[in-house]
Design a protein around this nucleic acid. Sequence first.
DNA 1: TTGCTCCTCACGTCACGTGAGGTGGC
DNA 2: TTGCTCCTCACGTCACGTGAGGTGGC
Lengths: 271, 271
Amino acid sequence: MFAIGDFARHGRVSVRMLRHYDAIGLLRPAHVDPFTGYRHYTAAQLARLNRIIALKDLGFTLQQVHDIVDGTLSADELRGMLRLRRAELESAVAESHARLIGVEARLRAIEREGHMPSNDVVVKRIPAVRVAELTAIAESYEPGDIGPVISPLYDELLRRLEAAGVTPAGPGVAYYEDAADGRITVHAAIQVAGGEIKGDLAVRDLAPITEAATIVHRGSMDAVVPTGQALAEWIDANGYRAGGYAREINLECPENRDECVTELQVAVTRA
Amino acid sequence: MFAIGDFARHGRVSVRMLRHYDAIGLLRPAHVDPFTGYRHYTAAQLARLNRIIALKDLGFTLQQVHDIVDGTLSADELRGMLRLRRAELESAVAESHARLIGVEARLRAIEREGHMPSNDVVVKRIPAVRVAELTAIAESYEPGDIGPVISPLYDELLRRLEAAGVTPAGPGVAYYEDAADGRITVHAAIQVAGGEIKGDLAVRDLAPITEAATIVHRGSMDAVVPTGQALAEWIDANGYRAGGYAREINLECPENRDECVTELQVAVTRA
DNA sequence: TTGCTCCTCACGTCACGTGAGGTGGC
DNA sequence: TTGCTCCTCACGTCACGTGAGGTGGC
């Protein structure tokens, strides 16, 4: 029989852990003195303690350890738990690795520029969104070619929405597709509620994006190029690959165009 | 200006998170209605939110994010934080990977044997320990050759300790080294307290073991071979390599030799 | 009037670490 | 008598999730 301190020493665990395992019923002392409350353990219980520690070291919760050690799990259920744990660990490795890539990219950036990049990229899921839209063709993806096309498109879109008695349900969304001869199809869209829309307007559901790299651009869209470039560099440095043109979410655009706030969203996949 | 719900939607965070960031001073709303307490955010604050989320996604704590975003950290301090984070992430990857190896080893064992191995191996640090000991030579590492050598050695050791007026400070420790011609030096040792020991006894400090794979053997040491084998198999299946013979810690040995409890400890390194 | 959004507490999470305050045996 | 070990609470950790209970504007 060992006192709790000796047992803890042999098992390389803390006394507090043994008390905790007692409290949750995972490892009850072989004997407890009814007067003093002192716990006593047998050497044979060290095997059980090792079993517990070994499973805990695999990352199982104490509840799971309890189920495995004392539960009446079939071999199949055990296999299932181990497979699940394996999958979780694979994700954990992948996630830590992705973070590592991100930290290393920032370290390189700080070496290059002397400070951290001030404009931050976030990867997130974008849900599907219903929009009303008008489209037109622009000569190229240059801001100089896009601006003159998309501005009147939005003016017209808002006019028609008003005529149809519809109030936008969210921000404007501009997006782009390749057209023939290197030209670009420009979509001037705005979020609307679920129902039907009468009048001269196309209603579309934009597909959700599982993983979109996003960046916030502040100022006129005429000056979006450096922001777009920062986004592209981040995507490259963090081991992603961009798929297509960025969506532009017009979050706010007051009188002064230099105070507009736009979010760029581009679908990405692991390179 | 966005109400908290809209701002949360655009930022893909929960309303609760925004309230939390307000509470800890990480992201204060641009405006709070003095009557209703309603929080309002500007689109421009989305850039700050993204900055926060991006850093959080690298695994920094909110306190660290706070320091990075608002603190007056020099480029050097920033570099230091990123390097530390990098090191932490490297360990995290290694740890998850080691766990993954362990889970996979168990899955293979369960496929092979239809159930989980019942005898569990734990890797732990063994601190240095001071022992008094006697040594002798055995013909081989076979239990049949070891037993007859070590038993009288322990009898003699205990006799001499008693003669010297010393009480053991811990369990017996047997360990082994290669001698000439394939023979084995047997050390029959027992833990003693720090002071001087008079009399006919060698006192030695056994070196600590940084990483020891350990297993608990129950029963007579005559039947230790399968336990030793289970330990060796685990070491192999989990990507370690054993260094030398196992130490045997005699935790408990009552009259009935079949109820002895012994821990085997063998130094390991990553293969 | 009914939804919807917003608000402020406040508990729960997970596996213990870390005191506080006190007792029993050498 | 002084250390040492043991005991039982009970708070703190980290970043929110999740009700409970209530209010303000369309």
